[in-house]
């Protein structure tokens, strides 16, 4: 364990030192970059309290971003995040003077397509560590399936979706045009039906970005 702590500490120090070194180039205007992220989703608010409390490692996203300036990029992003939770058997009131004992399973799939903006305020200093903020707005194909035992149904619909995020880009290569990124996205997913509310969630992301040409 001590060995891993030492290695991690050394890597962090190396990153910090290297971040003091000026790079020769950064993102260029007109550049097209692909961002690919793996995502861990965490339900929030009503979504967590009423529907699914477990986080989910079944998520990913990708963005195609056009570099408007060294600091600003705009593009489109798409993603997928699924949530699933099975609750132990309980008795539910399913009608007037009707009760049903069942194992309840909730399944939610969020598939957004958004217009996205990305701002890296320190891009022009050419350092390795680049903080960023992002925002997106678009449509979401939402699939909510609920089962009592093996019996149930689905509510599939298109909803609006809004997203705000922040994180850190770790550039690599001489040109500093590519890198790793880590960050978090808050997604606002409006939903109102059968007593269930918005499916807002937090996505923890890690991925890569690189120019396409």
């Amino acid at each position: 364990m001590t060995r891993y702590i030492k290695i991690s500490f050394t890597l962090i120090i190396m990153l910090l030192i290297s971040n003091l070194v000026k790079a020769q180039t950064t993102s260029k205007e007109g550049e097209l970059k692909l961002h690919l992220n793996y995502q861990y989703g965490i339900p929030l608010g009503d979504f967590k309290n009423d529907m699914i409390s477990n986080g989910s490692a079944r998520g990913y996203s990708g963005s195609l971003m056009y570099q408007i300036s060294p600091k600003w990029a705009a593009g489109i992003s798409a993603g997928y995040q699924s949530f699933l939770q099975k609750y132990p058997r309980a008795v539910y009131e399913t009608g007037d003077h009707e009760a049903t004992s069942a194992v309840l399973t909730n399944s939610v799939e969020i598939t957004p397509l958004m217009a996205t903006g990305l701002f890296t305020p320190l891009a022009e200093n050419g350092k390795i560590l680049q903080p960023y903020i992002s925002a997106g707005f678009g449509v979401n194909m939402l699939s909510f399936r609920q089962y009592l035992g093996e019996f149930g149904g689905a509510d599939n619909k298109a909803t609006l979706i809004a997203q705000g995020g922040a994180g850190l880009q770790i550039t690599f290569g001489k040109a500093k045009e590519s890198g790793f990124s880590i960050g978090a996205n808050y997604q606002y997913v409006p939903y109102q039906r059968n007593g269930y509310g918005n499916m807002n969630n937090l996505g923890l992301q890690a991925g890569l970005y690189f120019p396409l040409k």
């Binding site: 099975k86 058997r89 399913t94 009760a99 004992s101 035992g149 149930g152």
Partner: peptide, 16 residues
């Protein structure tokens, strides 16, 4: 969602 249900979990009991 239904892949990991045992036969016991798949059953529902309804009374009215």
């Amino acid at each position: 969602p239904l892949q990991n249900l045992t036969p016991e979990e798949s059953r529902i009991y309804t009374t009215s």
